[in-house]
Design a protein around this nucleic acid. Structure first.
Length: 291
DNA sequence: CATAGATCCTGTATGC
DNA sequence: TGCATACAGGATCTAT
């Protein structure tokens, strides 16, 4: 499942392969792959030159020269952005094909479960002298963004009364974190995801965010996390971080901190993995609290 | 407004 | 072997 590290791996690959190229043809093969788009994707993009490749959280976008519009992409559950030779066969799940005027390798959006999509958007100024697509201006900056404002983020979190895992997954509060890294960060911080944000101290949230950032940085160093061929970089290669997960997917395995068996629980229509001893729903008793 | 829950989708795995 | 069901989950929409 592509989360921040996986999307960043894709961004780097795209930056290397599509920057500076001019779009010659856009072929939409599946209507669901293009959403929230005003007008036709090909009409808006043909003839435009890609200036660079940007990312915020799990969103990618390609600003076109002039910084007026961008091609925005979200990989969803199973989306892939692949750079492939023109003669490579069309796969079953090919959704969008982009051809360039240099007749070099194509950019292909491939998506089995069609939770991902592409769209064009207008670029508007952000709060740091750059630009951001208007349709994702509600997405918060992510933990690897140099302009991420941690103090403001912690204040916002503590002003709410929602479960901390739900907050980690809310892209308008902090972006880039999905189910896997949420569980890993909570495990490292020894926090139960159902604890309420309003009841957590600022230092504790700071510690949690620090773990979230470090686990994603480590995953990025490994090329991301993939359990199967559904998440791959632009060359179709998988990452290796799945070999180092401590909580996610580890039901029945001993906790790396205390040896208790990792438990799985339903949460928000998905699974949460946590240590029942290290990550108690009520705060862990401190030594002076013992009788 | 704030929060909680349902929904979209399809390939793979599991159970009877 | 075959059929049914569970599961994966990001973002968005709807309900309370």
């Amino acid at each position: 499942m592509p989360e921040l590290p996986e999307v960043e791996v894709v961004r780097r690959g795209l930056a290397e392969h599509v920057t500076g190229r001019t779009i010659k043809l856009v072929e939409v093969r599946h209507p669901r792959a293009v959403r929230r788009n005003l007008g036709s994707l090909p009409d808006q993009l043909v003839g435009e030159r890609i200036r660079c490749v940007s990312r915020r959280g799990k969103y990618l976008w390609l600003p076109m020269a002039g910084d007026q519009i961008a091609l925005v992409a979200h990989l969803g559950m199973s989306g892939q952005l692949l750079v492939q030779p023109r003669e490579a066969p069309d796969g079953k799940h090919l959704r969008v094909r982009i051809d360039f005027s240099d007749d070099g390798p194509q950019l292909r959006f491939v998506d089995q479960r069609t939770f991902g999509g592409m769209m064009t958007a207008g670029l508007v100024p952000d709060n740091a002298g750059g630009h951001v697509p208007d349709i994702i201006s509600h997405i918060s900056r992510d933990l690897l963004d140099p302009v991420f404002d941690e103090v403001a983020c912690i204040t916002r979190l503590r002003a709410k009364n929602i479960e901390i895992k739900r907050a980690l997954l809310d892209q308008s509060l902090i972006s880039g974190i999905g189910n896997i890294y949420a569980d890993e960060a909570l495990w490292r911080a020894k926090l139960n995801g159902r604890r309420s944000t309003g009841a957590l101290s600022a230092p504790k949230i700071h510690e949690l965010l620090k773990h979230a950032k470090s686990v994603m940085t480590q995953a990025l160093g490994q090329g991301g996390t993939s359990f199967d061929a559904l998440y791959v970089n632009v060359n179709g290669e998988s990452g290796y971080f799945d070999r180092q997960l401590s909580a996610y997917g580890q039901e029945g395995e001993p906790c790396g901190h205390c040896g208790s068996l990792i438990r799985r629980e339903k949460f928000m229509n998905r699974s949460s993995f946590f240590c029942p001893r290290c990550q108690r729903r009520s705060p862990n008793p401190r030594p002076q609290d013992k009788v």
